[in-house]
Each structure stands twice: as C-alpha cells, then as structure tokens.
Amino acid sequence: MGRVLMDEREFSYRPADFERVRAIIHRKAGIHLADSKKQLVYSRLARRLRVLGLADFSSYLDHLEKNPSEQEEFVNALTTNLTAFFREPHHFSILAAYANKHKNSSARLRVWCAASSTGEEPYSIAMTLIEAFGRYDPPVEIVASDIDSNVLAEASRGVYSLSRLQSLSLSQKKQFFLKGKGSNAGNAKVIDALKQLVEFKKINLLDKNWPLEGKFDVIFCRNVMIYFDKPTQMILLARMIRLLKPEGLYIAGHSESFSHAAHLVRLVNKTTYQVVHSVAGNGSEGMAYEP
C-alpha cells in the first residue's frame, strides 16, 4: 500500500537512473544521497524534464552529461534550502557575546555564512551584529555563500513574505524591514543598511579554490556537512578552520557533531567549536576533494 509503481510515474525512472544521479551529484557537489532520497530526486528533477520536453530520466541524464549549462540547474534542483530567520537562536546569542567581547578590537569582525540559502541566515547575523554594536554601520564584514545561484539571487533581493518574518520580534521588524504597499503588499524588504553588510558569493565547497581572502572570526556552516560523507566532511572541516582566526568560532548545525575530529576542533558551546591548534595556510587552496 502507498508504493508508487514505476509505470504510474509521469516519467520513466529506473533504479539505474537514481544511481547515475547519485554519482553525478556526489561528483559535482559532494552531496551523498541516501537510498531514501529516490522520491525526492524524482520530484525535484521531474520539473527539469518538463521544461526540456524529455520523456524519461535516462534521456535527461544523457542531456545533462552533454550540456554543461544544465549542470547548474541540476545542482540547484537537488540542493535543499530549508532556512528561517534566527533558526537555532542560541547560535546568535553566542555570536552576540563574541561581538561584545571583541568590540574594542581595531580589526573588523568578519563572518562567513557558508550556506546562505535565501538569505535569512546572513541577514540574521547582520541584525545580531548591528544590535551588538549598537549602530547600523558596525565594523563588520559578512560573506554569504551558496552553491545554488537561484537562492543567492533571492537572497540578494532581500524581499520576504510577511509570514517568513514570524520568528522576528516586533522591534526587529520595525528596525530592519520596510513593509510593502500596493503591488508589494504582503511582503517586506530588508533595509539597505542590512544589505550593505552582506556580500553574496557563489561557492561550491568542493572547488579547489574559494574566492575568499583573509581570516574570519566566525564561520557559520550549519546543517551542511550532513549532506557529505565522512571523508569529505573531514577535508572540508580542515580547509575551513584554516580560515579562522586563532580564537575564532566554527558554528555547526544541531544535527552535526565533530567528536570524530577532536584533533582539529574542540567543543566550546552548543555545536560551537574552536580550533585545537594553529593550522597553517589560508584554507582556500589545496586539500581539494577528489572523487
């Protein structure tokens, strides 16, 4: 009961097709798809088959291999983008405490949000730091990256339905958003002061070189590592912590643990880590993941 038969589907989708998808997304983005993701793959990629007018997944995957322009659509379709403002709120309290501790530093506080999705996380970081410094132009730089070009475009616009602002306080809504009127009714736009703190970049974490310069005080990489296998996790973690300042923080997601990486990082707060010892290098070179 409840099992979807192959011949009931709109498009032919064989077990071999799923295995090809799994191999390609692992090669392109390092994402490990479990057996349980077969239906998710079908529903996400079926949209592309409709757009391209293809009859089955085998034809789509042949098209994908021959047309590099489709590869971005493929990765975008399979990238999960679950996010919300101030998701896992304890992390923003930790960030605020870190900012307060470093207020008197002459250096700008730099944060990398490594999975920005549609922008809620980096804008939450920006709001936290504006509140911590008590000014709309704090000495802060936020780099927000994602592999999905579609969500980056949405994040850059900074326009959200009012329903997506439910986790914000009334004060935050008034401080940081402009309520839409007329044709924009039902939406709100982040204020320019907030947008000016965030630089959006497209970054595939598997790329050999990341377009990043200098060291960061805090790296938010939440609920990203769960999509990679253990060897890839270790490679990426080692690269990322090379970008942290000596007392910097690496903030992971609620379902991620690096107890197996005790030689690299130590737990200092709830899913928040610091580097065990100084790691040489800038982290954007070498140690690239090779499938």
Rank of each mutant, 00 (worst) to 15 (best):
M1R: 10
G2P: 08
G2H: 07
R3I: 13
L5G: 12
L5H: 11
L5Q: 14
L5M: 08
M6R: 15
E8T: 07
P15A: 01
I25S: 04
A29I: 13
A29S: 12
I31N: 09
H32F: 15
K37L: 08
K38C: 09
Q39H: 03
Y42P: 06
A46M: 12
R48P: 07
L49F: 02
R50N: 09
G53H: 00
L61F: 00
E65P: 06
N67V: 11
Q71V: 12
E73Y: 13
V75Y: 11
A77K: 13
L78E: 01
A84M: 09
F85N: 03
E88S: 08
H90C: 08
F92L: 05
F92D: 04
S93H: 07
I94N: 05
I94V: 07
L95Y: 06
A96S: 02
N100M: 02
K101F: 05
H102S: 00
N104V: 05
A107I: 01
R108A: 12
L109S: 04
S116E: 09
Y123G: 06
A126V: 07
T128Q: 03
L129C: 02
L129P: 02
E131Q: 11
V140W: 02
E141R: 00
A144V: 09
S145C: 08
S145V: 08
I147H: 05
N150T: 13
A155S: 06
S156N: 14
S156L: 14
Q166M: 10
S167F: 09
S171L: 14
Q172K: 01
Q175H: 10
K179T: 15
K179V: 12
K179H: 13
A185N: 02
N187E: 15
K189R: 14
A193Y: 15
Q196K: 14
F200L: 12
L206M: 11
N209F: 13
P211V: 02
P211F: 03
F216R: 04
I219Q: 01
F220D: 03
F220W: 11
F220A: 06
R222D: 04
N223K: 10
I226D: 07
I226T: 09
D229G: 05
L236S: 07
L237V: 10
M240Q: 06
M240H: 13
K245F: 15
S255L: 10
V265N: 11
R266V: 15
V268K: 07
N269Y: 07
V275R: 11
M287D: 14
Y289R: 15
Y289P: 11
